[in-house]
Amino acid sequence: MRHLYVHVPFCPSICPYCDFHVLTRSSGLVEGYLARLDAEAQELAATYPVDLDTVYLGGGTPSFLRDNELTALVGSVQRHLGWGRLENTLEVNPGTVSAGRAAHWRALGFDRASLGVQSLHDPTLLFLGRRHSAAQARSAAGHLLAQGFRVSGDLITAVAEQPLEEDIQGLHDLGMGHISAYTLTIEPGTEFARRGVTVSDEDERRGFEVTAERLAALGYERYEISNYARPGERSRHNLSYWQNRHYLGLGPGAAGHYPARDSGLLSLRRTSPHLHDWLRGERGTPDLLPPHEWVTDALFMGLRLREGVDLDDLTQRSGVAVAAAYAPAIQSNVQQGLLIRDGSRLRATEAGWWVLNEVVTDFLEVDVGAHQADS
């Protein structure tokens, strides 16, 4: 197990578009969280061989933890599971950053920061329910870069009246080596959904296209459908998801992808329950993946990458003759200009990225029972 995701569910406030497992802190809750996290880290270490390349603290708002709390969390991870050799990322809210705190996070061993800028336009931030200002975001980026962090800036697109080109240029000018650009999505159960907020098809399409055009012109490579990087700035941790690798999930609401011990299965996914059940020691029900389900997962995730997937590699890893099993779906989407097949390499076109969920649906409908690869 070379990758670890740690979920920190605490936030200073809940954004109206957020459907992640997050909550505001209350007396004793963080202390209980840290104690349970230490015990769960020990359990994972006893269950799986661990040699970490990457660690990612997400949330929630990990940088909302007080300095002593984050120090304790990192201590638990390092004591039981070690630390990432290649990359250690901390998700950061701009309103939590100071020069001193950035130095403290760097001293703890974090070398990459994912900064939740979302926009550099104060009216857009107000609409999104963000509590930081554009000025705070600029200041935060400066503090992190001054400490030697590799910094990724989050950007939300498709917000009505958002000056998107200015936001993109602003993130570039701040010195972001990596930008993650996500369309505003209205999820059921969120405050935006209750208020009847909608995202127009026109704004969604414009955000998708303008972001790609402007960031390419500024020298960023679009290496994944929503992620852009300068040379050497790709997220090594997130690549483990898109390449369908195994990874540990630590904390309430954390998802993990683990090897299966049953020879008839290829792997299992497990999402931990929300905080209060997790504090009682509940683990969540595993989702067991036979080889054909693992392959469709790998296709769904891998086709998000610019280089796509290597069908021979998927065959070797799954035991399913992938090119043969999915030949009709591959051919149909190639003919429609949504996929490109180059030898064993299969990747999505720009048009295919726009309708990727529909493309993957074609693969889900395939019966692969007769297509076991030769041993």
Rank of each mutant, 00 (worst) to 15 (best):
A217R: 12
R270K: 13
F300I: 02
E213M: 08
H276V: 03
Q331I: 06
R214K: 07
S318Y: 08
R304F: 10
L248G: 04
D262Q: 15
E224Q: 05
L268Q: 14
Y241Q: 04
R214D: 03
D312C: 09
L311E: 02
Y220S: 10
R214W: 12
R270D: 01
Q335M: 03
Y326S: 01
Y220N: 11
P286I: 09
D287G: 08
Y223D: 05
L215H: 02
Q336L: 08
P273T: 05
Q335R: 08
W242G: 02
Y220W: 03
A298H: 10
G251V: 07
L268M: 14
N357G: 11
N244Q: 11
G256P: 09
T285Q: 13
A298Y: 05
L266T: 04
M301K: 06
L215V: 02
S240A: 15
G302S: 07
G302A: 11
A216W: 13
Y223T: 01
D297Q: 14
A255K: 14
V334P: 09
N357P: 11
R345F: 11
P291K: 03
G232R: 12
R347W: 10
P273F: 13
Y247I: 08
A298S: 14
T296K: 07
R230C: 11
E224Y: 00
S267H: 12
R230I: 05
R345L: 12
S235D: 06
A327W: 06
R270Y: 14
G253P: 02
G352Q: 08
G251L: 06
L314V: 05
G256Q: 07
R304W: 15
H246G: 15
G337I: 05
V295Y: 13
L248A: 00
L265D: 10
S272V: 02
L218G: 01
I340N: 12
L275V: 02
G337H: 07
R345C: 10
N227I: 04
L248H: 10
Y223A: 07
S332Q: 15
E213A: 13
L339F: 12
S318T: 01
A216C: 12
W278I: 03
R245Y: 06
G319H: 08
A229L: 10
D342G: 09
E350G: 02
E213T: 04
W353K: 09
G284A: 13
L268D: 07
H257Q: 12
R347C: 05
H246R: 15
I330C: 03
R280A: 07
A348N: 00
G219I: 04
M301I: 06
